[in-house]
Amino acid sequence: MNPVIEYRAVCKNYGSFVALRDVSFSVSKGEVVCLIGPSGSGKSTLLRCTNGLEQISGGAILLDGAPLPQTRAGMRAVRQRMGMVFQNFELFPHRSVFANVMMGPLTVLRMDHAAARARAEALLDKVGLADKAASMPAALSGGQQQRVAIARALAMEPAVMLFDEPTSALDPETIGEVLSVMKRLADEGMTMIVVTHEMTFARRVADRVVVFERGGVLLEQGPPRQIFDAPLMERTRDFLSHLDWSG
């Protein structure tokens, strides 16, 4: 099957600091790929390069076989096909939940108000927050805000969803509600790239897990069973063993 997104020897430097070094892998349609690894290993940077929030320094990122465009307008068109969910939600604080979800369709897609409204209603219902439509983001819990952020990204009907540590800023008791929404999305066949420290989620939901190590190097990749139960690389085992607190 043709990959939706393909990373070819992607490099990213900030001055002399190397954030990504020759990263190559691809993501097929409907696939859920979890990126794991220690902080500072370039996972979030790769995600930001994917929708052009950062420019790569070398290699190529292909969307449906075509390299990401260099023009602003071209990049905007690409971003409209990729939804992104951030660690800190980044809901627009001056707009209601409803307006946040409608923002993309109204502003970017120039959809008419009734259609945008219908779409937002359906999506808020889907993430279980239909009753919060009129609330302001500040009135919601972290988990609720993140679910709204997912609805906001889905409102653009993206081909791919990018999740950048979506549960890292959440209270433990609200993590589950966000992961459940993401699981449902995966079950519906959404193509997803998820940077996460939630190994249970990666194990249960991912089709493939990609392990990064410090210096922005792709260490190994494979189905979750292989990565978590029988990793090929010693350093993967090291990383995973450090996640468990063994006193």
Binding site: R48, R76, M84, F92, V108, M156
Partner: peptide, 9 residues
């Protein structure tokens, strides 16, 4: 970043 990610100009 959130606004850009939505595809805003």
């Amino acid at each position: 970043r959130a606004a850009l990610a939505l595809g805003m100009s």
